[in-house]
Lab assay of single mutants.
Amino acid sequence: MSIQHFRVALIPFFAAFCLPVFAHPETLVKVKDAEDQLGARVGYIELDLNSGKILESFRPEERFPMMSTFKVLLCGAVLSRVDAGQEQLGRRIHYSQNDLVEYSPVTEKHLTDGMTVRELCSAAITMSDNTAANLLLTTIGGPKELTAFLHNMGDHVTRLDRWEPELNEAIPNDERDTTMPAAMATTLRKLLTGELLTLASRQQLIDWMEADKVAGPLLRSALPAGWFIADKSGAGERGSRGIIAALGPDGKPSRIVVIYTTGSQATMDERNRQIAEIGASLIKHW
């Protein structure tokens, strides 16, 4: 067993022997301040990774656009098919120029040779490549099948209805392509620590998230040296922004954090800054 596999296998073990965790309302004060600064709703939840206990939450059962955070769930569904012998990570998928959609920095470079399922998941999570996500959605049967996968996990809230990039439209009061912070946090925890996926697939999923290259201005910008984070960000229309993450000190994750916002007129930089400040408060009061 590799060191990384050992780390993920012992996530519940280490967490069980940690000192009790206590909620700190100071972080919620910052979440509410972010709402004021952005002029928009902000949803927040913080779960203990081992027990699933909610440590703090704000608007945990209000719907927010998922945006690209759905790509972690998508690759979880792909990995479940791999575990069941219905898919192979090494299978190569070929596609054409007509398949390319807006923001496809990886797939646009491989029109000639195609990409493997493993490479597509890596591109979808680490670079948020939209064509990679659409190609992977095709392998599982489309958005409705991802929703069905989530329902089978016990998540009857999260739903995907459309493809990239239309799913980022974020129309107010439109339930399409949305989740709730509580539902997303619980589902992410199941994917990373539950028995739904094999140990190898859980490790692969967290490795992809740990290698995320496009979430630097968010929670990662607030992390002290030595902290662990595996995350996936999302951005959408109407001032929408979000991030889902597993993080913790001492090089291992111990909490799940989900943050979503929508309806702001603020710039992307300002949305990023507010999420980073929430992260800084979380870490300060850990």
Rank of each mutant, 00 (worst) to 15 (best):
S2I: 15
R220I: 03
R81V: 06
A246F: 12
L223R: 05
P20T: 07
H24K: 15
P172R: 11
Q86P: 05
A215K: 05
A40S: 10
T112A: 13
N168V: 06
R41K: 15
A182Q: 11
T198R: 09
A23T: 04
P165D: 06
F6D: 05
A34S: 13
L199S: 11
G226H: 11
A148S: 15
K284R: 14
A40D: 05
A133G: 12
A245H: 00
Y95L: 08
S2C: 08
A84N: 14
S68W: 00
M1H: 01
S233H: 01
Q4Y: 13
K109R: 14
I11H: 05
P253Q: 08
N134R: 04
Y260H: 01
L19I: 15
H156F: 10
R271V: 10
E166Q: 13
G141W: 03
S254K: 14
A266D: 09
E61Q: 14
A84S: 12
S122Q: 14
M66V: 14
P12A: 13
L199P: 15
M180H: 14
A170H: 09
L218Q: 03
R41T: 09
V258R: 00
I140P: 01
E277Q: 10
N134W: 02
I244K: 00
D161M: 05
L197E: 04
N272V: 04
L218P: 03
Q265C: 10
V257M: 05
L73K: 01
V82P: 01
V78Y: 03
P224D: 06
V21N: 06
I256L: 11
T193R: 15
M180W: 11
E166T: 11
P249M: 08
A266M: 13
S96P: 07
F228W: 05
W286Q: 03
I229P: 00
A222D: 09
L10S: 10
E277S: 10
L219G: 03
S254A: 15
A133D: 00
D174G: 05
D231A: 06
S104F: 02
N50L: 12
C121F: 01
S57D: 09
V106N: 07
R176Y: 07
L282Q: 06
I171M: 15
V21C: 15
T198L: 10
T178Y: 02
E145V: 12
S254Q: 15
I275N: 01
Y44L: 11
P172N: 10
T107A: 10
P65E: 02
L137D: 01
A123T: 05
M1W: 01
T262I: 09
T261W: 04
T178W: 01
E108D: 11
S2D: 07
G242P: 00
P143G: 06
I244M: 08
E145D: 11
L135F: 06
L150W: 06
A225M: 15
A183Q: 12
A280G: 12
G248Q: 01
G279R: 01
A170Y: 12
T69Y: 03
S221P: 09
A34H: 03
Q4P: 08
L38I: 10
E119L: 03
L89K: 04
G216W: 08
R220V: 04
Q274D: 04
A15I: 14
T193G: 15
K30M: 12
N272A: 05
R59H: 09
I93P: 02
L79N: 02
L89G: 06
S57C: 09
L167H: 03
R176F: 08
N50W: 10
R162K: 07
A225L: 12
E210Q: 12
